[in-house]
Design a binder for these strands. Structure first.
Lengths: 151, 151
DNA sequence: ATTTGTGCAAATCGTTTGCATCTGA
DNA sequence: TCAGATGCAAACGATTTGCACAAAT
């Protein structure tokens, strides 16, 4: 399985990258399919990314492989389930997927929809309430909303 | 203008409550209409609330006044614009409206969709990154996600 | 009288699903 | 071979909008 898309278009994937991706997907119990491989490649090739399903879909098309939007959604959800991605809730109208799995927070530029990572060490929380009786605290999400400077 | 809904059903609104509501709406430049008044009453009568448009719609119907869902949405959005409500983004599938305008944060029980206020003093943040060049930080949203205790 | 709000149904948007068809193991 | 993946179009749920009618100033 390679990522050669067509005669005129192909993505340069090194054998190491390919092996790494394959291991990742297999470890999650998934088959290696061409759309899946391409999407994984786009998601993970350049470090941490924040993407909308729609954006990933456009990117895949731009790279020459026409995946359907439904497959992009399905694949993203499988990656989510497999723990390869995280979801970031900042905007009630769309879903963001985050390839950065470490504990961290976000700046959110409302005007552009852009997300920027904030390492968790950059925010020091000295006091946090405990979870109410009967509950565990499963996550702490911090979103720092940004607006273009007015001055 | 009163909130007598029908012959068999009416809501007990004291004249003071009514005046207070009226002032609030007028200050925001809105006319006093029956649906608006009822919704404002339901929203603000019992201190801080977190509501979904759908839930407010059901509540209004239960009180005997059939407002349309579209009007509930429109009214909530107007209240948002007027600064009478805040929006809380915790779930990418629905929007929550919050009558608590003070700075505070939330517990979110994912299993039930319930939101619980956390006063801002309950969370001490000792260090926060500054906004990137050209931006102002317009808000700090903290969501503490809760799951039913597994043990 | 004029402006604004309302209800309804249709439209929209992001996302999911059913099903017939392909494909990887 | 055959479970699992894909594409397409239809289905979906939340929210918005267009328009004719009603109510507030």
């Amino acid at each position: 399985m390679t990522l050669e898309i067509s005669a005129d278009k192909s993505i340069n994937v090194s054998p190491e990258q390919e092996r790494a991706l394959e291991q990742r997907l297999r470890a999650a119990g998934m088959r290696m399919t061409r759309p899946r491989m391409l999407l994984a490649f786009l998601l993970f090739r350049h470090g941490d990314r924040h993407l909308t399903a729609e954006r990933l879909y456009e990117e895949a098309k731009g790279e020459g492989l026409a995946v359907s939007l439904a497959t992009v959604y399905n694949t993203l959800n499988q990656f989510l389930d497999a723990g390869l991605l995280r979801q970031v809730v900042v905007d009630s109208t769309r879903s963001y997927f985050d390839t950065n799995l470490g504990g961290h927070h976000h700046f959110f530029v409302e005007s552009t929809g852009e997300l920027i990572d904030v390492p968790s060490k950059a925010i020091q929380i000295s006091d946090l309430p405990k979870a109410p009786e009967g509950f565990d605290m499963s996550g702490v999400d911090i979103v720092l909303r940004l607006t273009p400077k007015t001055a």
